[in-house]
């Protein structure tokens, strides 16, 4: 009994106290985590399906644990009432229209209740209130959707299989694919196509140059085209021409009627030989007039302004024709 000194008792006491302190601290931290020691209030929410929610699971608001599930009870065959303990500190942030949903903590984690704030004002929740509950897309439903997708996929792959089988069985296709000459033809066609496109390209470049020149007002045509007033006058003239032709058509119809009925002035005119002679004279005058116009146009061609442009065009066309000839390829 010489070893049974007071020092040993002190050591034993320290040892036991240290062990109990570990236990008490752990239990206290766990209790605080589960809101055993903070003031709490209970609220309820109804769900159709709680997906394995257990008493003691967390309740989160904005991802932060604010309470725990206290009781889960069946109210009827399609309603499960969950009673939650919420920390009183969050009471101002949980409004009456907050929606409670069942969720999981991570992919394989615990089932939890998420409180989601909704837009719109509502008074803060009071103890005993019932929050609207909503069931999110559960994994079961996701799986059933996936099932439908799967079935569709099966149909698609079956069709695909039929198509490939047909393709495999088709001699024509395989001949086509195996034909060497066809490939040569195709290559030649492609080359022709290349030259054609090259020509087209050149032409397009010409047009571009032309339009570029026109846009910058080069040449008379450019002047004509860029002059908006002229365009307006042209429009006006066309409209007048259209009106004139309408009038002409009406006149002609009237004349035709007069000729058929042998009445009115036209008939007298047709019957009048003097009038027909005058008409012939008039036609001669018109002929002379158009000849004059033709001459004038020729003079225009030799005009300094336009001549250079037309020459360049001719040269280009000649060069393009040269390069497009198959043997001339480098």
């Amino acid at each position: 009994m010489s070893q049974r000194t007071a020092a040993n008792h002190v050591r034993l006491g320290l040892f036991v106290l240290a062990g109990l302190a570990c236990l008490v601290v752990t239990l206290f931290l766990l209790g605080r985590q589960q809101n055993l020691f903070s003031r709490s209030m209970t609220v309820q929410a109804d769900f159709r399906n709680v997906s394995g929610l257990l008493t003691g699971n967390n309740v989160r608001l904005g991802g932060i644990p604010v309470g725990t599930v206290r009781r889960i009870q069946l109210v009827n065959d399609s309603t499960v009432r969950v009673t939650m303990n919420l920390n009183r500190d969050v009471q101002p942030f949980v409004r009456r229209n907050t929606v409670a949903t069942i969720g999981t903590d991570g992919l394989v984690g615990n089932t939890i209740i998420n409180l989601a704030a909704q837009p719109g004002a509502a008074p803060p929740v009071q103890p005993g209130d019932r929050l609207p509950g909503s069931n999110p897309v559960g994994i079961d439903e996701m799986l059933s959707t996936l099932n439908v997708s799967n079935r569709n996929l099966i149909g698609i792959t079956q069709d695909l299989r039929q198509i490939t089988r047909k393709l495999n069985g088709s001699d024509a296709l395989w001949q086509l694919l195996g034909d060497q000459g066809l490939a040569a033809d195709a290559r030649r066609s492609l080359r022709s196509m290349a030259t054609a496109t090259a020509r087209l390209d050149a032409a397009a470049r010409d047009v571009q140059q032309l339009t570029g020149g026109v846009r910058r007002g080069r040449g008379v045509a450019g002047y004509l085209l860029t002059d908006t007033a002229f365009a307006g006058q042209l429009g006006h003239a066309t409209r007048q021409l259209a009106g004139t032709s309408d009038t002409l058509a009406a006149t002609l119809a009237g004349l035709k009627r007069q000729v058929q009925t042998k009445q009115g002035p036209l008939n007298t005119l047709l019957a009048d030989t003097a009038f027909s002679r005058q008409l012939r004279q008039s036609m001669q005058h018109v002929e002379q007039g158009t000849a004059g116009f033709s001459r004038s146009m020729e003079a225009l061609q030799h005009n300094v302004l336009v001549r250079g442009y037309l020459k360049r065009q001719q040269k280009k066309q000649a060069r393009a024709a040269l390069s497009a000839r198959p043997g001339a390829q480098p």
Partner: peptide, 9 residues
């Protein structure tokens, strides 16, 4: 107490 000391501590 002595046994607690021996056995525990």
């Amino acid at each position: 107490l002595y046994q607690c000391y021996v056995i525990g501590y």
